[in-house]
Design a protein around this nucleic acid. Structure first.
Length: 471
RNA sequence: GGCGGUGUAGCCAAGUGGUAAGGCAAGGGACUGCAAAUCCCUGAUUCAGCGGUUCGAAUCCGCUCGCCGCCUCCA
């Protein structure tokens, strides 16, 4: 498949480096608060990419996502609330995993925490100091940016330009304003660890270098995150990797666009944000997922209640088809007819379109369009076909579920199947109601339908029987 | 100042040289005891504006205008 590589600044063919195994590292949360709906975009997008690679490309994906559990924001939060940094980190790490579950997103293969790797980071920083790429000032250690020949290659900027118009404060004791902190001397009361430069804590950029190498080994295929991380975070990772070893670092760098609200980028500091768990509770995982994936992942996405409502309606259209067909045909016996086989051949074309779209820089928007065209095709067949020809509609449902799977869509079980008491009772009422309708006792028949609706069960009378679904 | 993104129907949104996908909303018709759903029909002579290249441009080039971002912690 083809993916846009920020490092190359163009779309390139992507293949796993070896053994059909893809190593993917996605920058994870700093656990000082709940995620807002902007933070959740890379979570949804890149886990969908992961699933697509697993299900449709036949690759094994090792998906590593760090948890940053020590940094300035956590320390500030601790000072504000009186809780310990550890307690805050635990609270929001748990909240994060709970959110993943409610989003229907698979857990990462590994979720290494920064605080579990401080020793390794100290060793790493020592190596950089030994090699002349880092220097100590008053207990802080800085990375010497000017020593890396192609610093700025990822973000497309040159050191000289940055210095000219830079807003960076020169203060501190940096040799160069762009030198970044590898190790911070601890102030009293802050979490700290021993190091050759005194007690302190690691800077942010180092953990990803250590952890990606440790957990992905040779499979440094893809490093992903929001495009606000291109500079300085990812640039600084690359610089450290180059300074520490000649071994190659990540080949592909993928970046998602920012979520906007009211035309501006969403930020905690701007106050224009909504918590992800609140939106999720309001609309459900399927609608939220559809909303994100109906816009190309590299472009900015504007949050809006209208957009979520449109997503909800669009998802409903597909789900209705699935529910109706399963309600009508799930237990129907019979073999595929000739006309049914022709239909199955037709819908295979939509699968091909979906794959082509997904392979083209993960164009979920076109992939979803193919799904909608498949739904239209199936609806037309459904409106026209009779008898055993209709059995082929089950193939459409299987295909919809297959195509929806990487996207986290259309996986929910219909309520109609199985042998639950509920299903049995609804079937019984439908049976009785059919009798009422045949005797033109429409007032009673309507009462059954209305009262079932109040209970959350929707009845639909069609030429092929009465169908039901749960609302 | 440096670097980058973006502007497509009422709304959302694909499409980067071959003659405008898809969704939502809206209107008309069919079907239906009614309802819901579904089907059919209705939409951009046109892709911010102007100019250029080309047999051909939403797509390439130039200029103008609007909006957003990175260069500082940030998904």
């Amino acid at each position: 498949m083809q993916l846009y590589n920020t490092l190359a600044k163009r779309v390139q063919a992507f293949e796993p480096a070896e053994n059909r195994t893809v190593g993917m590292y996605v920058c994870g949360p700093t656990v000082y608060d709940h995620l807002h709906i902007g933070n959740v975009r890379p979570v949804i997008v890149f886990s969908a990419l992961r699933k697509y690679m697993e299900r449709f490309k036949g690759w094994r994906v090792v998906y590593v996502q760090n948890v940053t559990d020590v940094d300035d924001k956590l320390i500030r939060r601790a000072a504000e609330t009186g809780e310990s940094v550890d307690a805050i980190a635990k609270t929001y790490t748990d909240a994060y995993f709970s959110l993943l579950e409610r989003l229907g997103v698979e857990r990462p293969s590994a979720s290494p925490r920064a605080t579990d790797h401080v020793g390794e980071m100290v060793e790493f920083i020592s190596l950089l100091v030994d090699r002349g790429y880092a220097y100590e000032r008053c207990g802080d250690v800085y990375f010497r940016v000017a020593k890396v020949a192609d610093y700025g290659a990822l973000s497309g900027r040159r050191l000289e330009d940055q210095q000219a118009g830079s807003r960076v404060e020169v203060g501190e004791d940096k040799e160069n304003p762009l030198d970044f902190t590898l190790w911070k001397a601890a102030k009293p009361g802050e979490p700290d660890w021993p190091s050759p430069w005194g007690r302190g804590r690691p800077g942010w950029h180092t953990e990803c270098v250590i952890m990606s190498r440790k957990y992905l080994g040779a499979h440094l295929d893809i490093h992903a995150g929001g495009n606000d991380l291109v500079f300085p975070h990812h640039e600084n990772e690359i610089a450290q990797a180059a300074a520490s070893s000649d071994a190659p670092f990540f080949r592909f760098w993928l970046h998602n666009g920012m979520l906007h609200m009211g035309g501006e980028e969403m930020h905690k500091s701007l106050g224009n944000f909504r918590y992800a768990h609140e939106i999720l509770a309001e609309y459900g995982a399927e609608t939220v997922g559809y909303f994100y994936l109906s816009r190309h992942y590299r472009k900015p996405l504007d949050y809006s209640a209208d957009g979520l409502r449109a997503a909800q309606a669009a998802v409903g259209r597909v789900r209705r088809l699935i529910e109706d067909i399963e309600s009508e045909l799930r237990d129907a016996p019979g073999e595929a007819t000739e006309r049914g086989r022709a239909f199955a051949g037709t819908i295979a074309g939509y699968r091909a379109r979906y794959v082509a779209a997904m392979d083209d820089d993960f164009n979920t928007v076109d992939a979803i369009a193919a799904i909608h065209d498949l739904v239209s095709e199936a609806n037309r067949f459904r409106a026209a076909a009779a008898g055993d020809d209709r059995l082929a509609l089950r193939d459409a449902v299987l295909l919809l579920r297959e195509l929806g799977e990487p996207l986290g869509l259309f996986q929910e079980e219909s309520a109609t199947g199985g042998s639950s008491i509920e299903a049995g009772l609804v079937d019984l009422l439908i049976d009785l109601r059919r009798e009422l309708r045949s005797r033109k006792a429409f007032d009673l028949a309507d009462r059954v339908r209305d009262q079932l609706a109040d209970l959350g069960v929707e009845l639909k009378d069609t030429a092929h029987g009465t169908l039901w679904s749960r609302r």
